[in-house]
Design a protein around this nucleic acid. Structure first.
Length: 698
DNA sequence: ACATAGCGCGCG
DNA sequence: AAAGCGCGCGCTATGT
């Protein structure tokens, strides 16, 4: 390890001109608030030996009188290390590798180091070489590839006066050895991957798309997306009340059921009995009196009289309590107590244990077929779920994760090695599933705001995936719709019904209800049928999304109509099926590989699923390639205006820009998104706007 | 007390 | 018997 400046300078000197791997050890996972404790570096010297050194900035030394205690100690000043390493990282002709580089970049940038060489993220490399693995962690990968058994961090000994998770808490020698192993295996992976990527024809997508995109992602993760916390709190209040109202209605119905069981002399299952003190702890209003033995009686839960159950003297007293969030209890209520019979005309969702689902789609189907006879509690349940989802998945986590020191920014992770199609995924929190549709979408997206003196630029591709399908299939009608900027849903609806586009478009413009229905069907067809949805599922889709019921025969006719509407599209899909059967994989337009070994499965349904995945990845993955290239271009071109990417939602890009440059930046973003299309024989279209928040910029 | 599977639901 | 694809996450039920 390296613990003084002189050694540091010697190391830097000996690294010049050589490929190297790097890895930061930190006090936490967030670059904006946590510290870099040290830097591990590996390279190969003149003797072809791999050299690994841990450069220590900050660590612990054992206490003089008690080696179970560690004393914080400063080693090399970061500024000295950075000064020595700046020329190393500034080299452009050497390869610089790291495992999960976006993470390291955040910390390096904060210290003032920016790797300028040929970047190589070994995690992404491993993903491109096989996107079907379960894990791309360094330890698992090193074990699989080299048979290396790397130390498990959690098992390292640590000083007792530190939290176990802290790297600082691990005594210096084993800590350094651990860090050095990280870059050693990263370097070995880098050496091994390069020729493999080349052999598989993946070098271009790696160097021109994945690695430049890694820098964009690192920046997005550092910057984050600002929130209007006052409005978050407001919305939390509003929906807290809405949630409580509907929850109470469903709860009361459930409690009626339990009371009914009692009257019938039936047992109340244990899962319905809750300990009184647990309810109190959860904030449920409970009134009770206690007798001489301190046993509760005359108990009211939420103002409702309930019996008390106490099996033995040693067990705590329990009361019946209906849990509105429990699927099993809801199924008891709906299919037992209310005796709702499941519609047979359409297929409803069943669970693994054979029970009927209580999901939104099933409830909507029930409502459709029962009409006025449907219990009112269904609406309360649907409304409660909506409000509860909003609070539990979005508002409360946002409040917890917002950074009060930077405009309540949310810093999500964007991962390049999760989605097998090559899309990004987002987590902690997921910013790619923030509500966008309907009234709720408006309210929630309005919470995401531009920082002071900034504006948001929101641009999205219109029908990106279908344009890829048009490109590949060269279907005349599909291409015409996109080159002439026609309404695609009208086009599909017209062709399904055997009408011309012009005829249906005019009737839709004149508010002809029958024509509007045809367009609606066309829209559903575009979303559902492009990737091979079957009749039964499509029937449900039409009913749940549009409230229209068709017999299964009519649904099949619509599917046939869709396939006949775009005959070249249908033919091209068959070609893709053959391609994946022949090669076992397909490639996207950006050169990414999607291996589908299930295509050779003896299970015909599994093989068919692989066929559909092959078609889907050409569109979805190709779209992801294009959006990625656009983001790279955007990052380079808006930086002079101090603008930057803040989020990507698959076909949508959000950029934050100083207000004074917003118009310029909008034009750059739109241009960039269009210009990356030197790959497609189908034009692209981008819609973009400027606004103070995520909704109003849309 | 803790981990995992399954469901349900938000997005493109 | 079975025919959209791709995600992340909160919650309950279940098992250890």
């Amino acid at each position: 390890m390296i613990t003084d400046v002189k050694e540091m300078r010697d190391l830097a000197a000996s690294m010049m001109g050589r490929d190297f791997a790097f890895d930061v050890e930190t006090s936490g996972l967030r670059a904006h608030q946590d510290r870099t404790l040290g830097l591990s570096l590996s390279y190969v010297d003149d003797n072809d030996d791999i050299v690994s050194e841990y450069v220590v900035f900050e660590h612990t030394l054992p206490s003089a009188d008690d080696d179970t205690f560690g004393i914080p100690h400063d080693f090399i000043a970061r500024s000295d290390a950075v000064a020595a390493l700046t020329p190393v990282f500034a080299q452009t002709e050497v390869a610089m590798s790291a495992h999960n580089m976006a993470f390291d970049l955040g910390f390096l940038w904060k210290m003032g180091l920016d790797p300028k060489g040929e970047l190589h993220d070994t995690m992404i490399g491993e993903f491109l070489l096989n996107e079907n693995r379960e894990s791309y962690g360094l330890k698992q990968t090193a074990e699989r590839v080299f048979g290396a058994r790397m130390a498990v961090y959690k098992n390292l000994h640590h000083y007792l006066n530190f939290a176990k998770e802290e790297f600082m808490a691990v005594p210096l020698e084993p800590a350094a050895a651990y860090a050095e192993d990280d870059t050693k295996y990263t370097y070995l992976l880098f050496e091994r991957q390069l020729p493999m990527l080349d052999e598989e024809g993946l070098l271009t997508v790696f160097e021109r798309l994945s690695m430049p995109l890694c820098r964009v992602i690192a920046e997005m993760q550092v910057k984050g997306f600002a929130l209007d916390m006052a409005k978050v709190a407001e919305l939390r209040e509003e929906y807290g009340a809405i949630s409580a109202t509907h929850e109470h209605a469903v709860w009361s119905a459930g409690m009626d059921m339990i009371a009914d069981w009692q009257e019938q002399g039936e047992d109340i299952p244990d899962t319905y009995l809750k300990m009184i003190d647990h309810l109190v702890k959860d904030g449920v209003p409970v009134q009770a009196r206690v007798d001489d033995n301190n046993a509760p009686y005359d108990v009211h839960v939420r103002g409702r009289a309930v019996p008390v159950f106490q099996k033995t003297k040693r067990t705590k007293p329990r009361v019946p309590y209906f849990n509105v969030g429990s699927r099993t209890q809801l199924a008891d209520l709906l299919y037992g107590y209310y005796g709702i019979t499941v519609p047979t005309k359409v297929k409803v969702k069943t669970n693994k244990d054979g029970t009927v689902g209580v999901d939104k789609d099933t409830l909507k189907i029930i409502k459709h077929f029962m009409g006025d006879k449907a219990p009112k509690v269904l609406d309360d349940l649907l409304e409660w779920r909506k409000a509860d989802k909003l609070i539990g998945t979005y508002l409360d986590p946002f409040s917890r994760m917002a950074d009060p020191d930077d405009n309540y920014a949310i810093r999500a992770n964007f991962n390049q090695t999760i989605a097998r199609t090559g899309r990004l995924s987002s987590s902690s929190p997921n910013l790619q599933n923030v509500p966008s549709r309907g009234e709720l979408g408006k309210k929630v997206r309005s919470l995401f705001v531009a920082r002071p003196d900034h504006a948001l630029i929101v641009c999205d591709y219109s029908q990106l995936e279908l344009r890829l399908l048009a490109h590949y299939s060269q279907d005349e009608a599909l291409l015409r719709a996109f080159t002439e900027n026609l309404d695609l849903h009208t086009m599909t609806g017209a062709r399904q019904a055997g009408l011309t586009y012009e005829e249906l478009a005019e009737r839709v413009a004149n508010e002809d209800p029958e024509a509007k229905l045809l367009r609606t069907i066309g829209k559903s067809a575009n979303f559902g049928l492009s990737y091979g949805m079957g009749a039964k599922k499509y029937q449900v889709y039409l009913l749940v999304n549009n409230g229209i019921y068709f017999d299964i025969e009519d649904v099949q006719k619509q599917i046939d109509g869709f396939n006949e509407a775009y005959p070249r599209l249908y033919a091209w899909k068959q070609e893709v099926f053959e391609e994946v059967r022949r090669k076992g994989y397909v490639k996207t337009i950006g050169g990414r590989k999607r291996r589908l070994p299930e295509i050779y499965s003896g299970d015909i349904w599994e093989a068919r699923a692989a066929e559909r995945q092959a078609v889907n990845v050409k569109a979805q993955g190709g779209g992801a390639d294009i959006v990625g290239l656009a983001m790279i271009r955007i990052q380079e071109r808006v930086r002079p205006y101090n603008a930057y990417n803040v989020v990507q939602v698959h076909d949508e890009i959000v950029v934050e820009s100083p207000t004074e440059h917003a118009e310029t930046v909008l034009q750059i973003v739109k241009d960039s998104m269009i210009e990356v299309n030197n790959l497609l024989k189908c034009p692209l279209a981008v819609e973009g706007t400027i606004g103070p928040n995520w909704y109003e910029a849309k």
